[in-house]
Amino acid sequence: MKSISLYQDKNTVIHRIDPLSKILYILVAIIVPFLLASQIASAAFILVSIIILLMGKSLKRTVPMLGFSGLILITVVIIQGIFRPDNVTPALVLGSVVFYKEGLLFALGISLNVINILMSFSILVLTTKPSDMVETFVRMGLSPKLGYVLSSVFQIIPQMTETMATITDAQRSRGMETEGNLTTRVKAFFPLISPVVMNSLITTKERAIALEVRGFDSKQKKTFLTEVKKTRSEKVIKIVLAAVLILSLIGRVLIWLR
């Protein structure tokens, strides 16, 4: 079934990594540059994220996201570059418009941060199956019910689209015009609404029953269908990430002590 999530099923090392490690990576990628107050650290993490995404064959799919945030970042660069209060050193003169060094550097910092956050989240979102992600959350203590709601969110839109396609087929195969110009299509949309809603309600009821007969509401502690594979490399990844975090903490303290 199609899904609204950005995840694409590919068989790469990155796809196989435990979602928990990816979440940990996001935390490290965000916290470390913040602790060290270092733009170089941000840039480094961006580079690492790019490499990981390349390995996961998913780098291209970040382009639309980058494009969208790029638009916003450009406005940040323009506004900060020209109007930031502590602007003193002119860096670039375009006709009557002057960009200042302080503002541009500040905007660069923001841009690096935003791109860094975006890229590290991309790794999680683009290479992790939504259901695996939810399962990880449930393992970490999220209630299975909430987990179910979360994973339904990923399914509900594709399911609706499928129901709509089915009903459209039922309608046009009995002579209702659904193809053609905009007016026809708009007209064809309204008769869809009530069956789709009714259908969803019925499916929901049936699903509730199906879940209930399989003990969804049982008070027993739930086990998981899949076991987390505790491989050496997974451990190494987590330890490295933790080490980076601790080292940067120490670094921060050292900076303070100086």
Binding site: R174, G175, G180, S194, M198
Partner: peptide, 23 residues
């Protein structure tokens, strides 16, 4: 279009749930 063809060819779907949509 499918709708035009419907005048001539009628199909009873394999799964009635895919065909019935009225209340």
């Amino acid at each position: 279009t499918v709708a035009q063809l419907a005048k001539y060819i009628g199909l009873v779907f394999q799964n009635p749930n895919d065909q019935i949509f009225k209340g």
